[in-house]
Design a protein around this nucleic acid. Structure first.
Lengths: 153, 153
DNA sequence: GATCAATGGTTGATGTGTCAAAGATTTAGT
DNA sequence: ACTAAATCTTTGACACATCAACCATTGATC
């Protein structure tokens, strides 16, 4: 009977569970990061990636790869973050196509504060709400989903 | 030693697993939905919610609630989708503040096609890559995260 | 029944993302 | 060495989200 198509298929619901739970947690994390540190999640991610890199420095394209976004997105993100004084751009002498993004001292200070805040947010919103077993199960499943299909064809 | 702050805390990594796995799957789903049906995920979500509703119809604000976005977002989304002919707006006589969004026949047809495509995408990108046990574990965990904190204070 | 708060929707400003095109520079191939 | 391909970044056009302000309308209070 094609009169009632499969708009209520259980798989939609099941996957919707993942989507809603994920979005709920991410939204809560974004809210507290915003109110406590005045940082959006993309800004925090940039600071964190740079904070983990030697010299607090990354190429624009490497930053894009780590963030999982296009280089165009990073160009504008760094425009805004550098206007706020947390990062600076600098040219590369060996390859004059590349631009380095580097944390400023203000950026390092901001990251130190924000990382602590974010860790406690993570504890409250994620780790504190699941058992260790659940966290492991989720991590393992997501790790399996992480690499795209067809890499070994 | 404050020289090396906790930018590499394991919790960042663990949660990053969830973020990356989730984004990977969602991106794959969006790509195939786009290439096979020429629908973005927000458009598909709108069609699906309307397709499940009596008369294929919902108030703007109810649609916003189901999608988990603001009413402003829905206003513009329906602007675009109705320009494509998949939904129509219609005024409400009982309460002249409300606008109904209703699937057109073209919208119903599109949804029927897209729902089938999306279900098979879901099988390939999500259900096919995890065991039943893993899917259950993820769904259970995400369901627990779904309701915001502080609802029972 | 006049006022005032709550509700439903739209709009303007802005942040964040995409894609595709363009620019500059480097690397490879003959 | 010179042309051609690949790489890095930026830019323009646009999709999609937020917030805050605003307008209309409804409902509740006095």
């Amino acid at each position: 009977m094609p009169g009632t198509p499969s708009f209520d298929d259980e798989r939609f619901t099941q996957f919707g569970m993942l989507v809603e739970g994920y979005q709920q947690v991410v939204r809560a994390l974004e809210d507290t990061l915003k109110s406590d540190c005045d940082l959006s999640m993309p800004w925090f991610e940039v600071l964190l990636r740079l904070g983990r890199s030697p010299e607090y420095t990354l190429m624009m394209s490497e930053l894009a790869a780590q963030l999982g976004v296009t280089s165009g997105a990073v160009t504008r993100l760094i425009d805004r973050i550098s206007a706020a004084g947390y990062v600076s751009r600098q040219a590369c002498d060996e390859d004059r196509r590349v631009q380095w993004a580097k944390l400023t001292p203000a950026g390092i200070a901001k990251l130190e504060q924000a990382a602590a805040v974010h860790l406690s947010d993570l504890d409250r919103e994620y780790f504190g709400r699941l058992s260790d077993r659940e966290v492991s199960a989720v991590s393992k499943a997501m790790d399996e989903l992480r690499q795209p299909l067809g890499t070994g064809l």
